[in-house]
Design a protein around this nucleic acid. Sequence first.
DNA 1: TCAACTGTACCGACCAGACGGTATAGTAGT
DNA 2: ACTACTATACCGTCTGGTCGGTACAGTTGA
Lengths: 173, 173
Amino acid sequence: MARKSTGTKEKLLDAFESLLDEHGTAGATLDAVAAKAGVSKGGLLYHFRSKAELVNGCLDRLRGLVDEDIELMKAAEAGPHIYYLETSAEIGTPLDRSLVATTRLAHEYAEAKDALRDTRRAWLEVLNAHLGDIQLAQTIQLIGDGMYLEENVGSSSDEALASVKNVLTRLGL
Amino acid sequence: MARKSTGTKEKLLDAFESLLDEHGTAGATLDAVAAKAGVSKGGLLYHFRSKAELVNGCLDRLRGLVDEDIELMKAAEAGPHIYYLETSAEIGTPLDRSLVATTRLAHEYAEAKDALRDTRRAWLEVLNAHLGDIQLAQTIQLIGDGMYLEENVGSSSDEALASVKNVLTRLGL
DNA sequence: TCAACTGTACCGACCAGACGGTATAGTAGT
DNA sequence: ACTACTATACCGTCTGGTCGGTACAGTTGA
């Protein structure tokens, strides 16, 4: 089976994520997702047989992106903690988009909440393995969470990242 | 006019907040809110003429609670930063409930997003005024945000708070 | 003092539209 | 023949919102 340049399934997930981000779960209806992906509703339901399956597709994508991110984090030159904080402030990356979408879903779908919890735990493990200090690891994760939340509320994260890095140097990091 | 022990309007707002918290915006329908408040739908719509007005009532309540909190924060014995971190980890207080509800609404209502942004700015101002260090103030706010988010995802916050306090002492605070 | 009226607080039946989902007939490329 | 769709038409349910009506406390003027 020859892969298309961009599969329809991926396009549908992109549309779902972007609608979730822009208008929350209320805006992410099957009609809207299909329209945004340039597909008919029938086409959408051909690939995802129900809304629950669409949500599941979203969570699968997140899990894949997180696995990739964990590897990059472990291999980061400046250390996992710096990588973690820098990427927490980033917006618009596939992982960020996927994470934002899943956060929206988490309010209504327990599976999304679980996926988010698993993701946080995986990141904390890498942080702790590198720093050898669970309390510091937790605090850094909280800062990363904060930057992520700030991004959602709509404040500037570049400035915040600089502040955090400054405070981190005072801690000898 | 003699005040009732608990006004119907307040009961409706309580019900709205709790439904928002438990099931997200999708679960906070007019019918559900009315039922939870022990009022008919018509009764709800007598007090709040539309869902938008109900949302507005929620935001007004938040603003009032934040004003009170700002005063308590300024007067806190251990300092505004400690007060801020401790209350960020608290769940179930009227302010926390109001904040959680507004966060849910923020995905779909721009006014809720604005209210949240204003609230964050007010807290940061108090933090900065006390610490005299905007970068540290921003970092502490991020940690508070992180604890708030963690609470939403469902991790334990007591442990996190202890970690943060430990790290703060290393910073000489 | 009594009828007429006002305002507040609420009920519950109803409606138009949107939603998730089903069904089916047909099309284009491989 | 099979995959990957499009297009249209539905269905039952739920949603926000309207509307007419009820109950009742308080006010007003003759």
